[in-house]
């Protein structure tokens, strides 16, 4: 199948890739652009480890064609920290022990990044609902909830 040229913005930089129509964004990010932060877990859009942010929304990149992202603004975990240091949410995950094996963490962080813009002051119940598209097998979620709550507090103070 003929490949198509696709351009989009990834973490603020324009990227150009040549892909088959069937290529999934997660593979383009990981194989083509060497951004291996987002992972592959279930491939049926249940686990959320492939979550990235596209045009201001959290999206599971295993269930999106790269050709669909033409012209989009894509953010991945690699774009979270800046020259000034870690993002408040990243630091909160460290401080609250919100990660263990780290495999779900990039997706979890990207979802938290968007969720806290959708709901800057969530209670625990809202965190559970808002983060429910991301699975974790290690933490039992409790410390991730603490991390998101802490991040919300710190973001509001920042």
């Amino acid at each position: 199948m003929a490949k198509q040229a696709v351009s989009f913005t990834l973490n603020g930089k324009t990227v150009d890739v040549l892909v088959e129509p069937r290529e999934l964004l997660i593979h383009t990010l990981r194989e083509n652009l060497n951004q291996t932060g987002a992972h592959i877990g279930c491939e049926t859009s249940h686990c959320g480890v492939c979550t990235v942010d596209i045009d201001g929304e959290s999206v599971k990149s295993c269930t999106l064609l790269t050709v669909q992202t033409a012209g989009s603004d894509v953010k991945s975990v690699e774009g979270m920290a800046t020259a000034d240091g870690l993002h408040v949410i990243q630091q909160a995950f460290v401080d609250e022990h919100g990660l263990q094996c780290g495999f779900c963490t990039p997706g979890m962080l990207m979802r938290a990044y968007r969720f806290l813009q959708e709901n800057p002051d969530p209670n625990d119940e809202e965190i559970r609902w808002g983060m429910s598209g991301n699975l974790c097998r290690c933490t039992g979620y409790q410390n991730i909830i603490n991390a998101v709550r802490t991040a919300a507090k710190n973001l509001q103070q920042a």
């Binding site: 959320g48 269930t63 979802r111």
Partner: peptide, 9 residues
């Protein structure tokens, strides 16, 4: 329906 990410699409 589904979960937050899926609801976005």
């Amino acid at each position: 329906v589904a979960d937050p990410q899926v609801r976005n699409k």
